[in-house]
Write a protein that binds this DNA or RNA. Structure first.
Lengths: 258, 258
DNA sequence: CGAAAACTTGAAAATTCTCAAGGCGGGTGG
DNA sequence: CCACCCGCCTTGAGAATTTTCAAGTTTTCG
C-alpha cells in the first residue's frame, strides 16, 4: 500500500527534480486551516466507497508537484486516481485554447473517471499544491469489479457520483447569477472541508480568482468584486485566499433567492 | 427482444389511457424530416456499444407517451434505458422549483446512467414525443458486466460518454455567449441527426423555445431573437420548429470566434 | 530586494433579462 | 364551417447584470 512508485509526473511539466526528500512541501499558509497534514486516521476524508477501492485495488501511490499534471487531455487513460493528500483542479481545454475548470478535488476524491472504458481523457488534472495520489489501474479495477459484486457496486457509485457532480455544476452555470454562484461555491467548499474533519467556516483557497472565475463562468474581476461585496455585507471575512464564513445562513439564502 | 411489457408509464402523468392500439402517434409534422419511422435496419442510430448492450441484455421494451416521465428525480433507479424510437429531455428540478434541461436524447442514446450503482435518479426523463425504449435492468447489466469483459467495457464506455457529454454542456455554459450557445446547439443536433442517417441540414425541433433556453442557460426571448438574427443573416431558415441550416461553416465560425 | 503574479477597484460598454404587447396556428366546440 | 381559445412564438424598449479596459496595490517567490 505504501510502495512509492517510479512514475514521475514531474517530468511532464518541466519541473526541476528535487534531490532526496519526497518533494518540497507547499509553503505553510499563514492560517493552515485547510488541506493540512495527512490526518490522524491514515486516510482522511475517504468515504467508504473510495476507501474500499483503495484497499481492494492494492494501490501504489505517486507524488505530484504543485502545478504538475497528473494526466492530460487526449492521453490514453490507464487508471483512476484517489487523492491521498493535496488538491487538484480538473480543466477542459477548448479548441480555441480557452480553459474551463470543471472541478476542484480534494483528499479522498476520485478523479480520472472520464477515461474509464478505454477512452482518452477529455480533461486534465493539475495539482494545486504538492499532492499524493493512489493509483488504481483500470485493469485491476475492472478485474475486481468482475470478481466482486460489492466492489462493482462501489465503482458504479463513484461513476454515478461524478455524473451527479457535473450535473450540479451544469445547473449552477445554467440557472444562477454571479452572487449565487460564488455563494454556492463557498458553501460547497465548506461542506467538503467539514466532511473531512476540517473547519467548515475558515479555510484557505488553493486557487486564484481567475481559476474560481473559470469554474463559475465568471471573470476574475467579477469574482474579486463579489468577495468584496460579501465582505462589506458582513457575510464573510476575506484576506486574499484566507476565507472565513461569518453568516452561512445568509449565504444559503443567496443561493436560493438570488 | 420484442416482448412488450406491462409497465405503464402513462399512469405516472395522468394521461387518459388509450383502449387498444399501442399508443397514439404524434401529429404528423409538416416536414417530417427528423425522428421519422423506426428505420429500415431495425435499430436506427444505435452505436455498436448500445447495440451490444441491447442485444446482450435481452431487453424488453416499453412505450412512453409524449409528456410522460420515464423516470423521475428521487426514484430509486432500476434500469438503464436505450431509446428505440422517439426523443426525450432530461431535466433537473432544483430546490426552488426551477427546471434546467440537462440534455436532449434521441434514438440510440442510453439514458438513466446517473442511477447506476443503486443511487436514486437525480434528474427526470420526459418524452418529447411518443417513444419506445428498451429496458436494461441494472441487475442484468451488472451480471453481464461481471461475466463478460467486453460487455463491461461497453458499459464503462457508455458511462464515460455521459460524463464527457455533461462536461461539454458545462463548457458551453461556462465559456460561450448566447450566439455561440445556440450555434453549437444547432450544430450538435445536425451532427446527431446525420449520424442516424437523417438529414443533418433540415430537421424539426421537438422542444419549445423555453426548453431550448433552459438547456442553454438563456431565456426563451433570447433564443427567439437569436433564431431571428440567424435567419436575417442567412445562416438558417426557421419557420417555427422547422429548421434548415443554410451555412454551417458560418455557424461553426460563430462557435469558435463568437 | 526586486520582478512577476495576483488582486482590487472604477468607469464605460456590451450582453442578456424583464416586462409588455401582439401575432400565429391548430384544435375544439358551437 | 367558423370563431374562439390557448399555448407558443416574436419583437420592442428599458433595466439589470456582467464584461472589458485600465490603473494602481498587494503578495509571492526566487
Amino acid at each position: 500500500m505504501d510502495t512509492a512508485v517510479a512514475i514521475s509526473p514531474v517530468a511532464r511539466s518541466g519541473w526541476t527534480p528535487v534531490p532526496n526528500p519526497q518533494f518540497r512541501r507547499a509553503p505553510a499558509s499563514v492560517v493552515p486551516l485547510a488541506f493540512p497534514h495527512p490526518g490522524r486516521c491514515g486516510m482522511p476524508g475517504f468515504g467508504s466507497v473510495q476507501a474500499t477501492m483503495v484497499e481492494r485495488a492494492g494501490a501504489t501511490h505517486i507524488n505530484v508537484r504543485k502545478g504538475a499534471a497528473l494526466f492530460r487531455a487526449g492521453e490514453r487513460s490507464t487508471a483512476l486516481y484517489a487523492i491521498r493528500l493535496g488538491s487538484f483542479k480538473t480543466q477542459v481545454v477548448t479548441d480555441d485554447g480557452h480553459e474551463q475548470v470543471s472541478g476542484y478535488h480534494m483528499t479522498g476524491d476520485v478523479i480520472g473517471s472520464d477515461g474509464i472504458g478505454g477512452s482518452a481523457h477529455d480533461c486534465e488534472a493539475v495539482a494545486l499544491e504538492d499532492a499524493e495520489v493512489y493509483v488504481l489501474p483500470f485493469e485491476r479495477i475492472e478485474a475486481l469489479a468482475r470478481e466482486d459484486i460489492g466492489f462493482q457496486r462501489s465503482l458504479h457509485r463513484v461513476l454515478a457520483g461524478e455524473i451527479a457532480r457535473e450535473r450540479g455544476v451544469m445547473v449552477m452555470l445554467g440557472t444562477m447569477r454571479a452572487e449565487q454562484r460564488l455563494a454556492s461555491f463557498l458553501i460547497d467548499l465548506a461542506r467538503r472541508y467539514h466532511e473531512r474533519g476540517y473547519s467548515g467556516s475558515e479555510f484557505v483557497l488553493r486557487m486564484t480568482r481567475e481559476e474560481i472565475g473559470s469554474h463559475l463562468g465568471l471573470t476574475l474581476e467579477t469574482v474579486s468584486r463579489l468577495f468584496s461585496r460579501f465582505r462589506d455585507s458582513g457575510l464573510i471575512d476575506v484576506r486574499g485566499r484566507v476565507v472565513k464564513l461569518l453568516d452561512r445562513a445568509a449565504l444559503k439564502r443567496i443561493i436560493l433567492a438570488g
